[in-house]
Amino acid sequence: MDYAESTPDIRQAQDHSPAIQSWPPYQSTQLCCEPTAHIRAKNLSIAYHKHSVLQNVDLEINKGCITALVGPSGCGKTSFLMSINRLTDLIPTCRVSGQLHMNEVDILAPTTNLLLLRRQIGMIFQKPTVFPFTIKKNLEIPLREHGIHPKTSLASTIETALQQVGLWDEVKDRLNHPAQALSGGQQQRLCLARALVLAPQILLLDEPCSALDPISSGVVEDLIVSLRGQYSVVIVTHNLAQARRISDHVALFWSVDGVGQLIETGSAQHMFESPQHELTAAYISGARG
């Protein structure tokens, strides 16, 4: 089986033109943080029930970088994240307007093939969201559904994914045990493996460490750092120290009059050492937020 066949053009469901990105994973040999934008949001606004939660966001997420979205609760960071893989579609009253592109693909276009889009953009949630099945089944379901199940290599694919998140040695003897019996940190890493097994280009992480104990949190954090260069990572975090430790770019969101806005964005060094905006300075120093 040719891997390219299973990843048709994202823009049209029926089209069998060559893949945008082929499987196995995209291995970047370039330096991390190329200056090319992987995701571009222009004038992006999100509203729930006609109530605006995020307005006029212009943000570029660079390829292979870790971009941290920081800011107080309720300023639209998670909504922004969910608009990138169109998970906002699941919320009946949610409307996303403006422009959002992944490479040249218009994410918000109604013709976009959502299944392929979401296959290329993995997402991890705040709480570990393993399905209540066995560890193995958790990884098999997405693989099978996306038709990536070369029968002979299914086991090895699963092994690779689990090794990638450092879980293999811990669970290799109990792949058929319920995933919910794992610890919180292990579950979160399983979720990460479940996303990585689809070989995405982009990873969206919504406060992936906030529900974990400090030690598991450290493990997951190290894991995220190790992804730098291979994937474009967008991480929402409330933990400024974490953002400082791991991110290449930082974007500060703030709620102005109840509407989320992008206040300032730049390299981590810029944001933490010489912020331009007074809100950024106040937030970084712990005076606000």
Partner: peptide, 18 residues
């Protein structure tokens, strides 16, 4: 069912019937 199951299944690119 926790909505997060549905959300994470969708985020994995699983179709509705899947």
């Amino acid at each position: 069912l926790p909505t997060i199951y549905i959300q994470s299944a969708t985020a994995l690119g699983l179709s509705q019937w899947a």
